[in-house]
């Protein structure tokens, strides 16, 4: 019987020599590049992108991607506290309608509507969801899933806030640059801010709640209060996206509560790898342009997201980002055994 030659994968750290959590000993320019490249490259790319796509159809796609990236980041933030939201559309829609409503009925200028929508919307959502926080398990998902759908129904049947027609001809952004850069800077701040926040002591408490809320309670920490804070932060991000979108389109209709704004960010976050924030951003920046390319599919796009979600869950549960990260930090080579 011929002995089959078998190989085993060996992983070797590519990392720089002395490395603890917070202290880097930089010994060479190479180390510096190794360390900073993955952090600065995305920032620079994002900031430069608008120059390449200026004014065109792809600028819209870029803006769109940023919107969904914000929603995905907000989802990921809640998920790292153990709150699995199935209703990013709730935040998005609330933010959109608050800014749209203020602009339409009270003629407020943009620089007021967006901050008010961001903070007020976050507060509204937090209050709405506060009592659900007491429940464990999937209850939160269920409630968040149906609330936006019900809000959409509500606006339609009661004919409030513009009803099925929506609120039209709202104030546009003074310039296209402003909208795109607001969105991009929003994404950058959230991405790096969340990454920083979650590794701080505050973030440790939040992650602790996800891992074992009993231990956190025994540690003298009011978990509901911290969960509420997490929802507020995530809600603010979602509402901010909604408000931006409203003024970008100069229109808000009940479609802002649609399932799209839940499913696409979710698919992006799961595809990219939950828990890293970078994954959520990468995921949405892949999915949104992809779905623009696949425009011809029309209604099937939603189905496609569903398929991507399932496939990502089954095939690559760690997500793209963790995979890339591993590849970046480690060599892999085959060793004969």
């Amino acid at each position: 019987m011929a002995e089959a030659v078998r190989y085993r994968k060996e992983r070797i750290d590519r990392g720089i020599k002395a490395r603890t959590d917070t202290i880097y000993v930089l010994s060479s320019f190479r180390d510096m590049v190794y360390l900073f490249l993955p952090r600065f490259l995305p920032i620079i790319l994002l900031l430069l992108l608008p120059f390449f796509v200026k004014g065109g159809y792809w600028e819209k796609v870029l803006f769109y991607s940023c919107m969904f990236a914000l929603l995905a980041l907000s989802w990921d933030f809640m998920a790292s506290v153990g709150l699995v939201s199935l209703g990013q559309a709730l935040f998005f829609g609330v933010g959109a309608y608050i800014s749209g409503g203020l602009n339409h009925y009270f003629k407020m200028p943009i620089f007021l509507t967006i901050p008010i929508a961001t903070l007020g919307g976050a507060l509204f959502c937090t209050l709405l969801l506060f009592s659900v926080l007491r429940l464990r398990g999937v209850y939160f998902s269920m409630v968040t899933l149906i609330l936006p759908l019900l809000f959409a129904h509500l606006i339609e049947t009661l004919d409030i806030l513009g009803g099925t027609h929506g609120l039209l001809s709202l104030t546009p952004f003074p310039s296209g640059w402003l909208s795109v850069y607001l969105a991009i800077i929003g994404v950058i701040i959230c991405l790096f801010g969340f990454r920083k926040l979650i590794s701080e002591d505050f973030g440790l408490v939040l992650r602790g709640i996800k891992d074992d809320d009993r231990v956190v309670m025994a540690g003298g920490i009011n978990i509901h209060w911290y969960k509420a804070q997490a929802i507020f932060i995530a809600g603010a991000v979602g509402c901010f996206a909604g408000a931006l979108m409203t003024h970008y389109y100069q229109f808000v209709g009940r479609s802002v509560f649609a399932l799209d704004y839940t499913v696409l960010p979710l698919a992006g976050a799961v595809l990219g790898g939950p828990g890293s924030f970078a994954g959520a951003t990468i995921g949405t920046f892949i999915l949104v342009p992809l779905s623009e390319v696949l425009r011809a599919l029309g209604g099937l796009r939603m189905a496609l997201y569903g398929v991507i979600l399932i496939a990502a869950l089954v095939i690559l549960p760690e997500g793209l980002f963790h995979y890339i990260e591993r590849r970046y930090h480690q060599f892999e080579r085959d060793v004969r055994i």
């Binding site: 440790l204 992650r207 602790g208 891992d211 231990v215 025994a218 920490i221």
Partner: peptide, 24 residues
């Protein structure tokens, strides 16, 4: 706790951050 509970993914010393963060 009878069944020792801990945040398994965190380094041991980071496990103590949670109580250290408490209002008390």
């Amino acid at each position: 706790f009878q069944m020792a509970r801990a945040f398994h993914k965190l380094p041991a010393y980071k496990n103590l951050i949670v109580p250290l963060y408490s209002p008390r």
